[in-house]
Each structure stands twice: as structure tokens, then as C-alpha cells.
Amino acid sequence: MVRFENVGMRYGAGPEVLSDVTFTLPPGSFHFVTGPSGAGKSSLLKLMYLAHRPSRGFITLFSRDVTRVPRRELPELRRRIGVVFQDFRLIQHLSAFDNVALPLRVSGSREDVVHKHVTELLTWVGLKDHLHARPPTLSGGQQQRIAIARAVIAHPSLLLADEPTGNVDDTIAVRLLYLFEELNRMGTTVVIATHNKSLIARFSHPVMHLEDGELTVLNRDAETK
């Protein structure tokens, strides 16, 4: 599903924020990515959701070498990836419904299908009464749930979440993780970047540790202790 080989990444002419990152995520796997702030977790996810190209190395996604894939083919690949951004990146002037509906609409789904699925999902994440509310009128937790709903609405093959539980209490955080596990059971490969060790400890999924741009640990026990 995802394969990194000696991947390096830098922003512009700056120093490398990721160095010689190598790993493979099999289809249907569930991984946490952890590490201190500035370790490169977000950068790693940016490479995975095709927001950036690596400065060196190879990345294979859905059996495609995405370091060389033409730009015109990126949308098709991106539609197979759901992303929960750290800052949500909701479109502020759109309602919760329209934000969640976007991935379906950009892929050309019929409006009746959009309406059915979006309403169901927003109901499931507890926002049934806020379908037409705009993000600025909602709490951080509610916005986060919209962001998660938008990421999963199109049943992505790969789900990437950058600190998805940063703005919610432990109860909701665990509930969101259960949602991700549910998707994972349905075949979605899940990668969650978080530095919430207590949350990681509640689940038995493998952990990748990033520090100073290097992927140093792939050891479950060492990370959660």
C-alpha cells in the first residue's frame, strides 16, 4: 500500500526535515506515528497525502511510484486518500454538510447519494443538528468531527490523520479511534500521527517513531513505555 525507500524531504533550500526514511505499510494495516513536536510527523504525512514530493528517494503508493507520477494523475490518487489535517482545514464559508460533501462532489457523485451519505455520517459523528452550521460557529471538537467525516466520507483506501484527537476530550478521542478501527476493519489502511501516548497505549497497533527527521523506532513496546 505505502512504501518509502530512503526518502528525504526539505522545504525549499532548507535543511532536510526527513532523512533516509524507509518503511512499508501493508494494505489494511493500522499504524501510529509518534515523536516530539518538529520531529517530522506532519511532513511524513504530507508526503503520503501527496501535498509534497520528496527531495530524494522513492515513494510507492497504491503500487504507483508517486515521485514520478504526472501531476494530472494526482487527483485520482488523492481521491483514494482521506486526510484529517491538524488544523482541520475546513472551508469556513461552507456549512458542515457542504464541507463533508466535497470529496463526493469533486469525484462527481450524484446529489441524492451525496445527501444520503453525508447526512448519515454527520448523524453518526453527533452533528445531526449542525448540518447547516458553518465551522466558525462550532466548537473545536465539532470542527474536528467534521474534518474526520470529510476524510472518511468517500471510503478511502488510505486514511491519514494528523493529531486527530488534539482538540477533544479522552472519551471522544477513544470514540474517534474506534471509528478509525472500524474503517480499518473494512479494509482502509490507517496512519495516525499523534503524540498522545496514553491514547496509543489503549490500542495495540504498531508505532513508528520519528525523531529529528529520522524514523528510528518501529517497536511497539519501546514507544508506549
Partner: peptide
């Protein structure tokens, strides 16, 4: 954001 969710 539109690009990242697959908009052409």
C-alpha cells in the same frame, strides 16, 4: 484543500 481531496 480542494486539490488534496482530489479535485482536478
Amino acid at each position: 484543500v480542494l486539490h488534496l481531496i482530489g479535485a482536478t
